[in-house]
Amino acid sequence: MVTLHVNGKAQQVDVPPETPLLWVLRDVLGMTGTKFGCGMALCGACTVHLDGRPTRACITPISAAAQGKVTTIEAIGGDQVGKAVQAAWVDLGVPHCGYCQAGQIMSATALLQQNPKPTDADIDSAMSGNICRCGTYTRIRAAIHRVAQKGATK
């Protein structure tokens, strides 16, 4: 048994400790908002926050995840910055298929939490681990700037 702290809740799971957090979230806990894209931390679709830091769940064994607090897309709206990022994504019509956007939102939220006024170069650097095959990058940039301009709303 491994005890995970996900979105403020302690969850006991009975899978081998080397199992990646991604598959435990999705298959064991039924939280499918965190997506599988590559399994090798190459695409960012599985991005969650571990103690506030953007983390690729697909290569993070639950034995490591159990050491901290996990936040997923399902709960990021509870954070002011996360909520503002979600709203900007909807307002600017960022998503196409939307599959990568949970990971994009998690990465963007972490960026804005650390750096409330990122430059284009900051955004490119923070977001380049997240692939969007539909090619929504210019709108992602615009949405991040919008949050930065408006500030996270209460």
């Binding site: 999705r26 939280m31 499918t32 908002g33 965190t34 997506k35 599988f36 997923t72 897309i73 399902e74 709206g77 979600q86 709203a87 994504w89 909807v90 307002d91 019509g93 998503p95 939307g98 599959y99 956007q101 949970a102 939102i105």
Partner: peptide, 19 residues
């Protein structure tokens, strides 16, 4: 009009084939 699936996508509720 905004995308009908926009809020679900942004909150991780959207359901894909893999979900």
């Amino acid at each position: 009009l905004k995308l009908v699936d926009g809020p679900n996508i942004a909150s991780g509720k959207a359901q894909y084939g893999i979900d």
